[in-house]
Design a protein around this nucleic acid. Sequence first.
RNA 1: CGGGGCGUGGCGCAGUCAGGUAGCGCACCUGCUUUGGGAGCAGGGUGUCGGAGGUUCAAAUCCUCUCGCCCCGACCA
Length: 580
Amino acid sequence: MRYSETFIPTLRDDPADAEVVSHKLMVRAGMIRKVAAGVYNYLPLGWRVIGKVEQIVREEMTRGGAQELRMPAVQPAELWQESGRWGVYGKELLRMSDRHGRDFCIGPTHEEIITDLVRGEVRSYKQLPLNLYQIQTKFRDEIRPRFGLMRGREFIMKDGYSFDADEAGAEATYRRMEEAYHRIFARMGLDFRAVEADSGQIGGSFSHEFMVLAATGEDDVVSCTTCDYAANSEKATSRVSPPEERETPALKTVDTPGVHSVEEVAEFLKTSPDRLIKTLIFDTGTEGDGRFVAVLIRGDREVNEVKLVNTLGADGERLTLAANPDIERITGGAVGFSGPVGLKGVRVVADRSVADLTDAVTGANQADRHHTHVLPGRDFPLGETADLDTARAGDGCPRCATGKLVIQRGIEVGHIFKLGTKYSEAMQATFLDPQGKKQPFVMGCYGIGIGRTAAASIEQNHDGNGILWPMAIAPAHVVLIGMNMKSEAVRDTAERLYVELRKRGVEVLFDDRAERAGVKLTDFELLGIPLALLVGDRGVEKGSLELKERKDGSTTEVPMDDVVDRVADKVREALGGHGG
RNA sequence: CGGGGCGUGGCGCAGUCAGGUAGCGCACCUGCUUUGGGAGCAGGGUGUCGGAGGUUCAAAUCCUCUCGCCCCGACCA
């Protein structure tokens, strides 16, 4: 690439509408331009980065036994109705109709399409396993797109789907994909963690997210300081030790005038927040008897709503805390004094932390009154219990005995799910097993945000002057800078090196512009290409050129005759055995 | 959807409170000089001030509506 002929519109100032560093730098470096909220143009340099990321993904998916194909972006509503998701996917699904009034959507994901394809073609267990993927533009009408490529509405995703004959096969495929994902993100030089995750809207039995650790991440990653436990905060559990066990005298009701909050109650009754039982009335938003649910949790802990949604089988978008009049009707008392003792006609779910409590305190379902000396199981039935607790930094690790949990921010760049038979059953996608019996496919699905991965790399690798691309996904390996293109000697040397470097498989951005050296060096730093080879009169006369590392700004003198070898070696070394 | 903020040459912004000929920096174009860390001098304006309506002798500025964009929130008892 000759800089003078390439469309690289760099900017001196940060764009006014960008907040995070990857967004600012990708715009400034002339890699992306916004078209609408969450919708971008990918300019030549940005598109090269995307291409590099895609290529690494392809290579490792192939190694993991997957095959690339391509499905349509526009999908008919019927398939979504069949899977049941047309009704539940919500406003994120961009819907439209064609000239005949038939409903379509722009695919946010392709479980329906692939399941339809495979059920139509695969008849026998002998044709399994099958692992298919594509790299394609997706559209999700996000509530709030933001941060450039980190959360776009239109975005490029690698989505893969596997079909196995049984659980064991599906599990093996899942492991192969998990390994492939580790290789993919390691090759890109990212600092990441694979964490246990909630499977959310896609559904299924279990899943892992691949999180790039960065302060601007939108997710909280909970991990153990000593063992390898790591989970999304939506899913994370922790060891919560109960307060000291003690004898519980007979239940007593006491006046607590004007005392509402957990802290106030604990102080007023001379006890600690971890002996309180908070009772929260949730509204699932559905009609009928099961609409309201009372949730019990220890006073010093907080309900994890994602876990609650999963436990209740509720719709996460509809679940809210109940309105005050509803609370008063259900508990028969004032808001702020709810408690499980004598609570009737409503489903009660307790967090595990409540089961261990002795000599506890709860609201009495009357204004300004609480119960003391409450023993779960004795004073109220301890029916349904579940893990509903939000893990916190400093909590004990649930897996090892000694570790403490820490919380870091992470960017979700990949997500793998074991789907089981959720879609194959809903869509009656079956094959014949060796006994000639119909069986539903056991599925998995595997996503990677291509653009988001590029953005995450910048979040993790940048400095005050610009981007620091790892060699593997940089838009070029080296910038060949003609320091003064008016000098004939410089021009001739640079032109010769441009040819020779490319012959050696090095990707060169030849800065042949009639700009001053300072401008070129500044742009080199902004663009973040790992190496710069400086060709100036000084070096040409001396017979040695300067090779500059973007990462630390260091410069080494290389004899003219060795320059091509040296650059080629450095590139090969940085790619770690994977070709350019 | 709720709250807040912002829309003025390509980009970043001032001007809006207090109505009176649309500005600054960068970029861009021409010429000369300069050429190893964002050059200097001289000349050049490329704008329906997001849009529509209203008030006024007069609107970027005041009022109403509308569109777009950004941020926070949409469980925190």
